[in-house]
Amino acid sequence: MEITLRDGVYFVSGDITETCELATAKLPQGPVRFDLAGVRTINSCGVREWIGWIGKLGIQPVYMNCPQPVVMQFNMVREFLANNAKVLSFMVPAYCQTCSQQKNFLLRSGVEFKPGEPLEDFEIPKCATAGCAIEADVDFDSYLYFIEDLVQ
């Protein structure tokens, strides 16, 4: 796993596991933005490491561009969203059989979803191809469930 700082945002990439040296990363106090788009996976020990690290620092994490592995952990491990964590945006993977393409749709806070409110009736936008058969690769009932737990 790597963390790099660019324009005030901490970009996290790779695999978050129990061996990550999180303690060595220097972070400011208050809200800290993490771009998680580059996270490939986060294992069960990695989640605990991450939660412990955020808790010790006492920062307010602000997560953006969260990929599917991270969203699945949001739903499973509620403490991931402790410390008044905010989620600015996350991805919904989808596949269109007509154009044979895997796509990722970004759902943004205040635009496609509102923190603390269930997201009902969300539909993946159709692509430009005639006879578009795009379908989410995730079950919305469970995948979008964490939104209800988010602080406004």
């Binding site: 490939r40 294992n43 592995p69 596949y95 059989q97 393409q101 895997q102 690769d137």
Partner: peptide, 17 residues
């Protein structure tokens, strides 16, 4: 007959645990 990115991620996470 379709991208297997999601399955690849699932597989590595299953194996990892």
């Amino acid at each position: 007959g379709r991208p297997t990115d999601t399955f690849a991620q699932f597989a590595l996470e299953v194996q990892e645990e």
